[in-house]
Every structure is written in C-alpha cells, then in structure tokens.
C-alpha cells in the first residue's frame, strides 16, 4: 500500500468521509429500483448489448447484466442505463 492510498484510507475512516468523495477515481453508482442505473466516472464503454453492458471505470470495472437495456444518456459526467437490471458485477 503506497503512501497516498494509506492516507486516503486513514482519513476516510477517521472522519467517516465517503470513499467517492475522498477518491475521485472510484465510480459512483446509483440504482433506482431495478430499472435505472446511473454511473458517474465512466471512462468508456467496453461492450454494449441489450443484455450485457461492460463499463470501464478505471479501478473498478462494472458489468451490468439484464434485459432490454438501453443507454438513456451518456456524457462526460455520467452514464444512465434504463431497462430491467438483473445484477451488477464488479471485476477487481
């Protein structure tokens, strides 16, 4: 564990700060029911299909598995997926 990582971990635990606030490279995901997913900090789309979407989010790549999924909006800030989301996979 390098020095930066250690200091971030220390401060987030000591001051109970959320990790996404302390470390901008961590993606922030917001799931509304199982029909809408908003991910901020997306660096790119690796794979796009109506049943499987893989997102490049840097340290924590995300795979969204579901049905009839569409990308509702995609811009520099966030990506919004609509459809029936069955599961989220985090490939470490």
């Amino acid at each position: 564990m390098n020095k930066d990582r250690f200091s971030k971990n220390f401060f987030t635990k000591a001051f109970e700060i959320r990790e996404d606030v302390a470390d901008c490279s961590i993606p922030r995901t917001e799931l509304i029911g199982n029909t809408e997913l908003t991910v901020s900090g997306v660096q790119g789309i690796v794979e796009y299909g109506s049943e499987r979407i893989r997102l490049n989010t840097g340290k924590l790549p995300i795979t969204v598995v579901g049905r009839d999924m569409i990308i509702k909006s995609y811009n520099t800030e966030e990506l919004c997926i609509n459809g029936f989301i069955e599961r989220l996979e985090f490939a470490l």
Binding site: G44, Y48, S50, I70, I71, S73, Y74, N75
Partner: peptide, 16 residues
Amino acid sequence: LNAAKARNIRVWDAVK
C-alpha cells in the same frame, strides 16, 4: 459512443 463522449457530444437513447 466513447468517441462522442470524449468530444463532449451529447448522446441519448442509445439502443442496440
């Protein structure tokens, strides 16, 4: 889609 995002082009309702 990635190129659009990189050039700040607004994209919505993307359906495969």
